[in-house]
């Protein structure tokens, strides 16, 4: 996992509410036993026609959205199943940041754990971003260090993020390593728990 302090790039708009993880990565693609390679199946039922051809109607297939590292979505993004394949697929496809008015809890957690930055902004702000990105190429600059989003005009908004996750994301750290440093505390807890039983 590589971290980042700032990110500059194209932003793609996906103006749909309650996009669930079954939509992000349909279940027929969950049977792999690797963590990688899920990007090709991202939004599969929307991205491809029944014949398996790219669906020209679908937002992410539009020319101006190719290789966008930033996704602007609508409310309750990532609801549904806890499958982590959803952030894997989004990352593998190339997204690094997702902006929405709200995220489903588990999905939000899963993003952070997989080095994907979910940014929650007020609905009006997201509406502005969606409108800006919908019909023309649109770029954003995400400054994680200073918790700011800016476009090339004069839009700027700040966002909040838990300090812990901010540090993890900037450094691209593995959580298990950090926890294993607390081995002694965990063992002590286990002994105490055994004693009261």
């Amino acid at each position: 996992m590589s971290g980042f302090k700032t990110l500059q790039g194209k932003a793609a708009a996906l103006d749909r509410a309650n996009v669930d993880t079954d939509q992000i990565i349909p279940k027929q693609f969950l049977k792999r036993i690797e963590k990688t390679g899920f990007g090709q199946y991202l939004f599969y039922d929307w991205r491809f026609t029944k014949e398996g051809l790219p669906n020209p109607e679908f937002e992410l297939n539009k020319e101006e959205n190719q290789d966008a590292p930033i996704l602007i979505a609508n409310e309750n993004f990532g609801c549904g199943s806890s499958r982590e394949h959803a952030p894997w697929a989004l990352s593998d496809y190339g997204f690094k940041v997702i902006i929405a008015p709200s995220f489903a809890d588990i999905f939000h957690q899963n993003c952070l754990k997989n080095g994907l930055l979910p940014i929650t902004l007020p609905a009006e702000t997201v509406d502005y971003l969606l409108e800006s990105a919908k019909s023309q190429p649109y770029a954003l600059r995400v400054d994680l260090q200073n918790q700011l989003i800016e476009d090339e005009n004069d839009f700027s908004a700040s966002f909040s993020i838990n300090e812990y996750w901010k540090k993890m994301l900037i450094n691209g750290w593995d959580e298990i390593e950090i926890t294993l440093q607390l081995e002694k505390i965990i063992s002590d807890f286990e002994e105490k728990q055994l004693a009261v039983q």
């Binding site: 982590e84 394949h85 926890t179």
Partner: peptide, 20 residues
């Protein structure tokens, strides 16, 4: 509660989870 695969790995390795 339900957890994702990274958390599954974390629980396997440490029997703990970071949770708010």
């Amino acid at each position: 509660f339900g957890i994702g695969t990274s958390e599954v790995e974390h629980v396997m390795a440490t029997q703990t989870l970071w949770q708010s």
